[in-house]
């Protein structure tokens, strides 16, 4: 475990806690894309299939349970909770996320580290995670006015993968034969997708004005 990966995991954990805090305290999910949350639940479910077969460390197991639990509870809140679900603007959150799942599955069947169920699911979860933010970014473009917590949530989510990229560079130079092209390329694509959001986020932060994304 190196500092970059630890910072990445903490940033990711914090992004999820910011979102849960928002939904739990103000009982609102305005500006949050349910589709992105559902995609993340699928990402964690398919990536952590080895939860009970491979024990790596207590930290690894606990974090997996936290990610699974939080993503599923966020989806539950947005679908079932009588107050929260009312604030979900489903007519704005229209990205057809099913169109993301099939290509990722096909790609995982074609490009994987080994043609086994676990490896294909693992590759699928990486490809899906790379594009899972798209419904959320589209929703932000549509709703334009981004409240602070949502902006912070998306920013932290993008920052976590940036830390992971530093972690992969570090591990490449410090560990023998540490090569994971599938992870590296997916992680890079994922971070690039946040590019313009980061640009506008920093601008609004620098000029101390409300975050506005161009239409």
């Amino acid at each position: 475990m190196n500092m970059f990966r630890f910072l990445g995991d903490m940033t990711h954990l914090f992004s999820v806690l910011v979102l849960l805090l928002k939904i739990h305290t103000i009982k609102s999910c305005a500006g949050i894309s349910l589709k992105t949350q559902e995609l993340y639940a699928i990402v964690f479910a398919t990536r952590y299939l080895d939860l009970f077969t491979d024990y790596i460390s207590l930290y690894n197991t606990v974090m997996k349970l936290v990610y699974l639990g939080s993503s599923l509870s966020i989806v539950w809140y947005m679908r079932r909770h009588k107050l929260v679900r009312r604030s979900y603007d489903k007519d704005q959150d229209t990205f057809r996320h099913h169109f993301l799942i099939l290509p990722c599955l096909i790609l995982a069947l074609l490009i994987n580290e080994k043609f086994t169920f676990m490896e294909v699911m693992w590759a699928f979860s990486l490809y899906l995670e790379a594009v899972a933010i798209l419904p959320q970014l589209v929703l932000l473009q549509r709703t334009r006015n981004i409240d602070n917590l949502t902006g912070q949530y998306v920013f932290l989510l993008g920052a976590y993968r940036s830390f992971y990229i530093l972690n992969w560079i570090y591990r490449y130079f410090t560990e023998v034969h540490y090569v994971h092209w599938i992870t590296w390329i997916s992680g890079l694509v994922q971070t690039l997708l946040y590019g313009d959001f980061f640009y506008y986020y920093f601008h609004s932060w620098k000029n101390n004005e409300k975050l506005q994304l161009p239409a």
Binding site: R5, I56, Y67, W122, T183
Partner: peptide, 10 residues
């Protein structure tokens, strides 16, 4: 691709 290493990352 090489043999799948143990997935130690989240």
């Amino acid at each position: 691709f090489h043999s799948p290493q143990l997935k130690d990352e989240l």
